[in-house]
Design a protein around this nucleic acid. Sequence first.
DNA 1: GCGGGTTTATGAACCGGTTCAGCGACTTCC
DNA 2: GGAAGTCGCTGAACCGGTTCATAAACCCGC
Lengths: 341, 341
Amino acid sequence: MRRPTIADIARRAGVSQAAVSFALNGRPGVSEATRERILAAADALGWQPNTAARSLSAAAAGAVGLAVARPARTLGVEPFFMQLISGIQAELSERGHALLLDLVEDVHAEAAVHRRWWAERRVDGVLLVDLRTGDPRPEVLREIGMPAVLAGGPDPTGAVPGVWVDDARAMTAVVEHLHGLGHERLAHVSGPPGMAHSAHRAEAFAAAAGTGAARAATDFSDAEGAVATRGLLRRRPRPTAIVYDNDVMAVAGLSAARQAGLSVPGDLSVVAWEDSALCRLTHPTLTALSRDAFRFGAAAAARLLDLVRHGPGGAAVGDTEFELPELVVRESTAPPRPNGG
Amino acid sequence: MRRPTIADIARRAGVSQAAVSFALNGRPGVSEATRERILAAADALGWQPNTAARSLSAAAAGAVGLAVARPARTLGVEPFFMQLISGIQAELSERGHALLLDLVEDVHAEAAVHRRWWAERRVDGVLLVDLRTGDPRPEVLREIGMPAVLAGGPDPTGAVPGVWVDDARAMTAVVEHLHGLGHERLAHVSGPPGMAHSAHRAEAFAAAAGTGAARAATDFSDAEGAVATRGLLRRRPRPTAIVYDNDVMAVAGLSAARQAGLSVPGDLSVVAWEDSALCRLTHPTLTALSRDAFRFGAAAAARLLDLVRHGPGGAAVGDTEFELPELVVRESTAPPRPNGG
DNA sequence: GCGGGTTTATGAACCGGTTCAGCGACTTCC
DNA sequence: GGAAGTCGCTGAACCGGTTCATAAACCCGC
């Protein structure tokens, strides 16, 4: 039951502990024959390194952290997050690192968690999501000197490198799709203006959609998505197409439109920013922007591990751009009715 | 930038390292005056214990693990999981523990992760979800002697204590609700028969629903939920009410019924096992079994920490029952049409 | 056969905490 | 006043790895 240590291996193989350490870590200093004898002994004993001991001398935790500041209510509904975490996880475990997860109230609590993790040496670095405007986190991370990567960057302050998607370009593509169908009065149901990527999208929308464009901000929840939709549909002239910043709100918007007596896509076209099973469950199915959250998470994790391993001057420098999301056209977008509005 | 150690505190307070350790851990051996001087020094330096060092001597990792073996595709869509994790997290962080998360392929990979975590001393215990029939995990955990708690037990082998919900009683309540409305031909769209809780529910359903009962098994995904629904609706006589084992399949079933030309709840009543925003987004809204996944997770985590702290003979022994889910009646259940079928 | 260099292996220090035996100083009690 | 006990604190070992200075063994050419 007692877990074997290198001392056990050393005794079994008849060598010193130092030799065992060299052998197990593939460093020079032991002959090939001895190395094999040691590896065989380690294998026979089922030895695994004690992470605490290794961390202590190596001054590396072998783990990275992800603290998420979103209400659990919102988090749970968005498939995006689990996919993201799954991708992060896959990359990390392949490279022998563990993932520490923390769900907290807000970005200040998150920064506090980062400080604690760092002080306790629990993690070698952290991943950031949901950058806010005036976000305290990048500054805190720079201050304590902890490696960090922003998933969904770039960080305008430049304190933290990011793996990012060009939301502006994606938004332009969505607007072009709608324009191409003949829509002229577009609306955007966005996330909180305090979220950086939300603000980016809103700007890009305003720039691409032209003068008739309307906008409503929400907290990403289905409830506010419905309220925003009702508000937009009361406008005269009424928008003929709405772009939602996530899948959940798009579904809520669909219900709201139906309750207002409008048909989709006859009276109103709908686009969701994030694709998921949800978008295929509705009737009509939703046109959506699809990105590979799994690979996105993996890319961010890979970037972070490089940073941890090689320091800021490592393999990649600055921000890394991730592929554009793909617009998957389904039933919820169609040309507007000639008499619409 | 260098993180302070107890040696720094000792130097600053003019005492030995041992005294510092005693003072910081609230143990006897230092006078009140000295203790305060030490705490002040620690505070001034912003000291936090190095978890690696502490783990090494205390032989405790200060973390617990959760490895989940579900396809990310399914995981992401179920709000239940994030709520559960959120609750686990809340309890853990309150008691100074971190959460290690791993998403893996299947229960065998999960058992392998448990072994590795234990050998590496990364965690003090693990939480189990989704017990399968013939699940290898309890046996592995008993073998290596790692504290574990099953969220969603009880474990029939008795190797791992569980925090559990009486699914059988809940299912009976659902069936009674439907019977009370006048339904006689009920159907159940269940999860994989290999999942223990799924099997329990199916048994309870069969016992309560009587002879006319039909059943279809799925993998919990929206796709199979739709297929199962179409199959059930082709039966003659047709069922007038369907109970789905999760929210996602219930929504998918709703679409499938509509496509088959049936109205809900006119021609078909629908009940979802798990409540979520999803159930309120649909049209009609879904009658659902609602349980507090957050508190459920917290309860499981609390049970595990007790086990870790006090051993198997600790505060609680055996399985702990969690409150029954509540049936939230919404628009999707109603009396069957007299001429239905 | 001997000096110089390389390979292979070892002992001991170190990472940052925890813990325990031991030792003065002080109190208590007879 | 001296034995016994308590209090407050220290020195050192220990957890399980990594690492470095050092030494023994071996190889080479001259």
